[in-house]
């Protein structure tokens, strides 16, 4: 579904050039859910942004559904295949566009027909229902906004969703609802996910396999069972898992 080979991403020019991602490679099979974990600045979100065409300066190979992409330009077909959900539902929705407008614009852009019926179906599918159709973002809670963002991503009927910390800005009870929703949607539509998160427990719950990143590099790839068992190969991943387990008091 997705192949990333030898991906380098950098920002700025020498001497200030920052290498955000350094020769990262991984592949996501159709229907698979793949996690990218790491601490802030490790480059995990930058990889998603490079795939989505949101950064200029990258090299290497990105292939989606068998088709290589280049630079920042993405074809119409690409956006029908790949959609992204961002971390902050307060920032990713236009404050003066109603839910109806957000979804109908997206549907029209994707050249969909029967817009009315599709909006109704999308809202049902993300658990909001028709009552939310003419609301504005300020009339919605964080969790409801993230549901709208997910509906917008689903409008194109994509096969791959790029999820950038989709629940980090939400309370844990709302996080559970959104993670359940994402799991249901994946099962129903046989989607593939790339999920970026700093929360190892979220990734273990949502993903089959994952890559651990540090300072722009993928330092280790493992499956969810190894993550749960703390069976990392490298020191860094092991330390990260241990630190995530929480704080141990000195007596």
């Amino acid at each position: 579904m997705l192949t990333v080979e030898d991906l380098d991403v950098w920002f700025g020019h020498p001497p200030e050039r920052v290498d955000a991602v350094k020769s990262a490679s991984f592949a996501v099979r159709p229907g698979e859910s793949f996690g990218l974990v790491g601490e802030s600045g490790s480059g995990k979100s930058t990889i998603l942004r490079a795939i989505a065409g949101l950064v200029d300066s990258w090299s290497g190979r990105i292939e989606v559904a068998g088709e290589a992409v280049a630079g920042r330009r993405r074809s119409r077909g690409f956006h029908k295949t790949v959609q992204m959900v961002f971390q902050d539902p307060y920032a990713s929705l236009h404050p003066r566009h109603s839910v109806d407008r957000v979804l109908s614009e997206t549907l029209r852009l994707q050249g969909m027909d029967r817009i009315d019926a599709r909006i109704a179906r999308l809202l049902d599918q993300v658990g909001l229902g028709q009552g939310f159709r003419f609301r504005y973002p300020h009339q919605l809670s964080g969790g409801q906004r993230q549901r709208v963002a997910i509906a917008r991503a689903l409008a194109a009927e994509p096969r791959l969703l790029l999820l950038d910390e989709p629940t980090s800005a939400l309370d844990v009870s709302v996080q559970a609802e959104i993670l359940n929703l994402l799991a249901d949607i994946r099962a129903e539509r046989r989607l593939s996910y790339v999920l970026v998160s700093h929360d190892l427990a979220v990734v273990a719950h949502m993903c089959d396999r994952l890559a651990v990143m540090r300072a722009g590099r993928i330092v280790e790839e493992m499956d969810a069972a190894s993550l749960r068992a703390g069976a990392a190969q490298g020191d860094y991943a092991r330390a990260l898992i241990a630190a995530s387990a929480g704080y141990v008091r000195e007596s």
């Binding site: 609802e177 427990a201 719950h205």
Partner: peptide, 15 residues
């Protein structure tokens, strides 16, 4: 409602 590394669940409990 919290996912946990040491306790896999099929579905998260919703409050």
């Amino acid at each position: 409602s919290l996912p946990r590394l040491d306790r896999p669940v099929e579905r998260l409990a919703v409050l």
